[in-house]
Write a protein that binds this DNA or RNA. Structure first.
Lengths: 160, 160
DNA sequence: GCGATGCTACTCGGATAAAAACTGTCCGAGTGGCATCGG
DNA sequence: CCGATGCCACTCGGACAGTTTTTATCCGAGTAGCATCGC
């Protein structure tokens, strides 16, 4: 069970864009990728997913790029993770209890959900609850940018 | 982020072995695979992982197979999941904050952990806590076996 | 001088290949049970 | 009849391919800005 690296990239990009402020000009993928030493084309794909989720807004043209679509306190970590990973839960019950010996079950015997699946989904719900409780604004407050992170923001703001 | 199917298989096998009782004879992979309609060789691989984790005990020979190594109330769901998926967390911080502009950082600037990684790990800790709070015995209690599940156990107990 | 217009460079966006992880399979080492043989 | 012994079938266990998901890349459509041209 490995989470996509795109989640880390997306969160760092959101945090950086929040530092820059929503009012500044848009930041293109190429600049963000250079600031973090990431593959530009693939990072672009991740940012597109964030646009689809309504977290970022994109603008085309020569001075286009991405910016935050909402205020940082209205972007939860869960939204970012879901945008990249998709909405499906990590644990998917394939109902193996209905295979083999279960094939002879009376109709309606498996009406109530599988207890194992219920337990796993409960755990995932706790995970989601924790992610939904934190916003990008919380990250801003908890960790003020270090010197080199301020440098990164300055580089992104320069040379438009 | 997709969890391995082996987790579901392992949990169902543990639950079934718990129904049978630790004192009965061992159940070989071939019989378990037939009872759930699963690929026998791959299921065997998963059961081996459970043996390595000390959850199951294996015995060789003509009447060999697998059985629970401990009492059901001493097997948490977290142990089973960790045995199959491995101990590494789903979210792995690759420290991209140190790339690019971060390369010019003063030594010790990144001593404190990344706030994003901390938040993600906090969420995963909640997930683990929920899994560690439930044991196989709890599954036994919560969901008594249905008719076809009892049939499955009977088939496993027969024809030794 | 001012506005309309065409062009150009740059951006996003989706379609297209490599890499990795997961899934599935095979065969060999080892062991316990059983039949056989000897006492 | 009882015990020792050799054999054999069956098991686990780890090494070996196939398939799906993830990662990475490329190229085209579209657009905003800018220079140019005409009035």
């Amino acid at each position: 069970m490995k989470m996509s690296e795109g989640v880390e990239w997306a969160l760092h990009c959101c945090l950086t864009l929040a530092w820059l402020g929503r009012d500044d000009a848009a930041v293109p993928t190429s600049r963000l990728a250079a600031a973090f030493e990431l593959p530009p084309a693939y990072l672009n794909k991740c940012l597109q997913l964030l646009v689809k989720a309504g977290i970022l807004a994109s603008s085309a043209g020569v001075k286009g790029g991405f910016r935050l679509a909402r205020a940082p306190q209205q972007i939860t970590l869960l939204e970012v993770v879901t945008a990249i990973e998709g909405p499906e839960p990590a644990f998917r019950c394939t109902e193996i209890r209905q295979g083999g010996a279960g094939a002879t079950a009376a109709p309606g015997e498996f009406a109530r959900p599988c207890g194992i699946a219920a337990a796993m989904h409960r755990a995932e719900a706790a995970w989601r609850r924790e992610l939904a409780a934190q916003t990008v604004a919380d990250l801003l407050r908890a960790a003020p940018p270090t010197a080199s992170e301020r440098l990164r923001c300055w580089q992104l703001a320069q040379a438009r």
